[in-house]
């Protein structure tokens, strides 16, 4: 396959994998959310993410002949996934889940905003659609980050600590792809550096309003590896659980 096609394929797979894995993590809050509205919010966001992942796998299938969405989503080997470490981490406490949701969704929002103008036409409408859905996710994340960042002494400290844990992982979202130059030259996508820049410009003022101190990105080691198939120890057990039912009877016609 030529490098242009490989470049787009790689981009779509990592986006689909990020959405799928964070969607499953969010879904683990179902029944456990701190209040009912949050339970429903996280469930809805999870549903959006998994649906977006499905749409991207379907696009990959239609455009590049990859396996069907279920096979791509559930039956690949662990090192074939291209998700970043941020989405793999267990939910932890609500503070970590919330900060992760905030950091991830602002990056996603800008990613799809940029892809609306891609020269790879089939992604444009999808990007516009996803952006309108993710808008609700960031509205949700922003409200809670502001509320808990400026809430009590304990909520502030927890959010600050969660931010410091999640920040290096979040920088791993922008791990450069081997096709970065092709993506940029062909105007498929402006590149991870450009995305990271826009992301930092967006989150910094919100974190300030929330009285939270953003770590200095230049002094933090980004958690890279996920985009090349090197994952944390948390991904394999999650994939095992996610795909258990499907692997139990892969030939089943209906569940």
């Amino acid at each position: 396959m030529d490098p242009k096609q490989e470049a787009i394929k790689e981009l779509l797979i990592k986006m689909a994998d990020d959405q799928l894995i964070i969607g499953h993590r969010h879904s683990e809050w179902i029944g456990l959310g701190p209040i009912l509205e949050e339970d429903i919010a996280l469930a809805s966001i999870a549903q959006d993410k998994v649906g977006q992942s499905y749409t991207l796998f379907q696009l990959l299938h239609d455009q590049f002949g990859t396996a069907d969405p279920d096979t791509m989503g559930f039956l690949r080997a662990e090192n074939e996934y291209r998700c970043c470490h941020l989405v793999e981490y267990p939910n932890g406490e609500y503070d970590f889940s919330l900060i992760r949701h905030f950091l991830f969704d602002h990056a996603e929002y800008h990613r799809f905003d940029m892809l609306q103008a891609s020269t790879f036409e089939p992604i444009r409408g999808i990007a516009r659609k996803f952006k309108s859905e993710i808008k609700y996710h960031i509205l949700h994340a922003d409200v809670w980050v502001r509320r808990l960042g400026t809430g009590t002494e304990e909520s502030h400290q927890r959010m600050q600590a969660a931010l410091e844990t999640a920040f290096p992982l979040a920088l791993g979202i922008f791990e450069p792809s081997p096709y970065e130059q092709v993506l940029i030259e062909e105007n498929f996508f402006p590149g991870e550096d450009a995305l990271r820049q826009r992301w930092l410009e967006t989150i910094q003022p919100i974190l300030e309003e929330a009285s939270l101190q953003m770590p200095d990105p230049s002094s933090v080691e980004p958690a890279y590896g996920g985009r090349r198939g090197y994952h944390t120890e948390h991904l394999a057990p999650l994939l095992e659980e996610m795909s258990w039912t499907l692997r139990y009877d892969p030939e089943a016609e209906r569940w």
């Binding site: 509205e37 429903i40 919010a41 469930a43 809805s44 966001i45 549903q47 959006d48 859905e133 609700y136 509205l139 949700h140």
Partner: peptide, 13 residues
Amino acid sequence: LQTPFGPTLCRAI
């Protein structure tokens, strides 16, 4: 607005 996430994705409460 109580929550932008309702019983289905297209509905808010």
